[in-house]
């Protein structure tokens, strides 16, 4: 029971990171594809405005996930980080480049500097979710054995499941970002931007949905046990919820109803994450290590749950205030571009 609760906390942190952190990476994807300096400027300005006050807080969900994993399931943590050292290191490098470039972009003095930092930000925003997705795919595909670097350093995360989950992570992030930015554009009274993000949302939504279906087919041939979990019981419910939420999202986007689409788009992604967890239950590292076997000392799990509960009492109201201020446009100082 106790290990399941801690696993639930980890899943909550993972979902929050996939939704909020994922959208920040997705914003980087749209920055990358916005076009030349002139043409892409309005899209990039909208991204900067929306992301600046919240990206650091959104990033903390990742730290929270890491901490819960190594405290609650230390054996699994050590096994994952040693076998999947390459994709996790790449994700880490991507995090430095993305965050560093984004934070310093505001001080760029010339177009060339702004371009170099912008390109770094944007490319790293694609690399990081792909690497994380590939790592998650490796776990789902059962390629992370218990032990110190016991799995293969390369083939563990370069299989078809990993590649598809990596692409899916990039696509869902881009889709969430397009929806969130569309809603921001509407609040900011920018119909031109609303149209721009409508096209991006619809396009990335279709791609993300296609990748999700392709992923299901690959899982069917590569990881039958996971496929069975996704096509029966609660796992199947999650898959159906995700599909339905995705379709509703596309319809809302078509009609430019971005405020509502934010919730359905998030639900579609959250249902995939939950479905994955349910489908590989009771395993943390399939096919051998269960959640219960991986769990740390009892006293620590109790303390961790208490600390998390108390922490959330502080974090949730603070986060709510931050998002309210940000969404109502009260967290923006105008950057004066220096000559």
């Amino acid at each position: 029971m106790l290990p399941d609760l801690v696993a639930g906390v980890a899943l909550l942190a993972l979902t929050a990171y996939v939704l909020l952190g994922g959208a920040d990476f997705g914003a980087g994807f749209w920055d990358l594809t916005a076009g030349g300096a002139q043409r892409g400027a309005p899209v990039r300005a909208m991204i900067k405005r929306a992301m600046s006050p919240v990206w650091e807080a959104n990033h903390v969900w990742l730290i929270f996930l890491l901490v819960v994993l190594w405290t609650g399931f230390p054996v699994a943590f050590g096994s994952i980080t040693s076998t999947l050292a390459v994709p996790l290191f790449l994700a880490g490098i991507g995090i430095i480049l993305r965050g560093g470039a984004f934070a310093l972009k505001g001080e760029a003095a010339t177009i060339a500097e702004a371009r170099a930092l912008g390109a770094t930000f944007a490319l790293a925003s694609v690399l990081t979710p792909f690497a994380f997705g590939a790592a998650a795919g490796a776990i789902a595909a059962g390629r992370v054995p218990v032990g110190n670097a016991r799995g293969d350093e390369w083939s563990s995360w370069t299989g078809s499941v990993s590649i598809l989950v990596g692409l899916l992570a990039v696509a869902t992030g881009a889709h969430l970002a397009a929806v969130f930015l569309g809603a921001d554009s509407r609040r900011a009274g920018r119909p031109d931007m609303v149209r721009a993000f409508r096209a991006r949302a619809l396009g990335s939504g279709v791609v993300a949905g296609g990748l999700a279906i392709a992923g299901l087919l690959v899982v069917r041939s590569e990881v039958p046990a996971l496929y069975d979990g996704l096509t029966s019981g609660a796992g199947l419910v999650c898959v159906l919820v995700s599909g339905a939420a995705g379709l509703i999202t596309l319809r809302l986007e078509w009609r430019e109803r971005f405020e509502a689409a934010r919730y359905t788009a998030a639900a579609a992604v959250a249902a995939i994450v939950a479905g994955w967890a349910i489908a590989q239950e009771p395993y943390l590292l399939p096919p051998d290590l269960t959640v219960h076997e991986a769990a740390g000392a009892h006293a620590t799990l109790v303390a961790l749950l208490v600390a998390t509960g108390l922490g959330l009492l502080l974090i949730v109201p603070a986060l709510t205030w931050l998002f309210r201020l940000a969404l109502s446009g009260r967290l923006a100082y105008e950057e004066n571009p220096r000559p």
Partner: peptide, 24 residues
């Protein structure tokens, strides 16, 4: 984790709580 997995796997549940509070 990337450099010291055996340290984390063996002692993560002894000292990890501090990092939980640090995360908050």
């Amino acid at each position: 984790g990337l450099l010291w997995p055996e340290f984390m796997a063996t002692f993560g549940d002894v000292f990890g709580l501090a990092f939980g509070v640090e995360g908050v």
